[in-house]
């Protein structure tokens, strides 16, 4: 076997980081000239789902455990932060980390039994656990039950993460969230963990025979993934100002969390970002301009897009970028 020179990997990783910095700078400048609230919201949501899907990708992509129950971690994070804020007065700047911790804890508790299952059995188990969670929250009166919780507004502040009219703070908040999840995914990608997790995804038996602890790898991936999903839930709760099980914990939200990564390129660093940049605007624009009639045209478009992308580019849209780059490399070589 031909040894890959060590610096090829470090060079690739350094390039990825440079690329990310450039994207970060562009995204930091992007909102400044935009004054239209709808467009601002659209960009904010796209950044948010890029981060959220990156968090899913850590477990679903890198480690290969396709979870359709992530909305539960999301909702738990939102409820934790909101309850801490409304009952104990703990500001969401701290509460969101508690929300993330609860999300990670839930991922551990759910992962412990579910990681015994594989393939479709695992996918369905995560889905069922998410449904149970949502049912319990719907019937839990202390946390508002089906009617949900309003987050009281205490004036514009960074401490409480409340901004009623300004959109720029949200933009930078969610940009930070997306950047943080990307950075974590990048760090994992080059670490020992990244290699172990990818081995678990590609071939469980081979990974185990090489001394990788399969169960511990899955659990570690689940905790990190759950943490950032819970954190995202807390942030999103602050953004919309109202949380309830029907909007924070449904199976369709679980799928929406996973979709950007799946469409963009599962297990890749840029997949969730590219996927969100295409999926979220299409979804939002079609529901604004076609969904108002209630005639389902937006649903048809959304469904057709998922089918077409999955069939046409099963390795994800990000592979189109690689195609462009590959072509260029071939010419220079």
């Amino acid at each position: 076997m031909e040894a890959i020179p060590d610096n090829a990997i470090t060079r690739r990783r350094r390039n990825e980081l440079r690329c990310a910095l450039a994207v970060l700078v562009v995204l930091a400048i992007l909102p400044l000239p935009i004054s239209d609230v709808y467009t601002q919201n659209l960009i904010i949501l796209t950044l948010f789902y890029a981060g959220l899907s990156q968090a899913w990708n850590i477990l679903g992509g890198t480690c290969g455990q396709i979870s359709l129950g992530h909305a539960f971690y999301f909702g738990v994070g939102a409820y934790t932060s909101t309850m801490l804020f409304t009952h104990l007065g703990i500001p969401p700047t701290l509460g969101m980390f508690a929300g993330g911790a609860m999300g990670g804890l839930m991922a551990l508790l759910i992962g412990w039994p579910c990681f015994r299952l594989s393939g479709h059995y695992y996918v369905i188990a995560t889905f069922v656990v998410g449904e149970i969670g949502s049912l319990l929250f719907l019937n839990w009166d202390w946390i508002g039950g089906a009617s949900g919780l309003y987050i009281p507004f205490h004036g514009e502040s960074w401490i409480n993460l409340q901004f009623r009219t300004a959109k720029l703070p949200w933009h930078y908040l969610f940009l930070t969230f997306a950047a943080a999840t990307w950075l974590v995914a990048w760090l994992i990608d080059g670490s020992r963990w990244g290699f172990a997790w990818r081995a678990v995804r590609d071939d469980v038996v081979a990974a185990r025979s090489l001394g990788v602890s399969v169960f511990r790898s899955k659990m570690a991936a689940a905790v990190i993934s759950g943490f950032f999903t819970g954190l995202g839930g807390a942030l999103y709760g602050q953004f919309v100002g109202y949380i309830d099980p029907d909007s924070m914990m449904t199976g369709s939200l679980s799928v929406l969390i996973s979709l950007p990564a799946v469409l963009g390129g599962v297990g890749t660093l840029w997949g969730p970002v590219v996927g969100a940049a295409i999926l979220i605007p299409v979804r939002e624009l079609s529901s604004t301009f076609l969904g108002g009639s209630g005639r389902g045209v937006d649903l048809m478009l959304y469904g057709a897009m998922i089918v077409l992308v999955a069939l046409a580019r099963p390795q994800g849209l990000v592979s189109l970028l690689a195609l462009v780059r590959g072509g260029r490399n071939a010419r220079t070589a």
Binding site: I66, G119, V123, V255, L259, V262, L263, V266, G296, V297, D298, L299, M300, L301, Y302, G303, A304, M305, I306, V307, A310, L311, P314, Q315, G316
Partner: peptide, 19 residues
């Protein structure tokens, strides 16, 4: 990603039919 493609193709089809 054959397993994943199957999940999301049928899933997208479901959304389309609902629409």
């Amino acid at each position: 990603n054959r397993g994943m493609v199957q999940i999301f193709v049928t899933f997208g089809l479901g959304i389309f039919i609902r629409g």
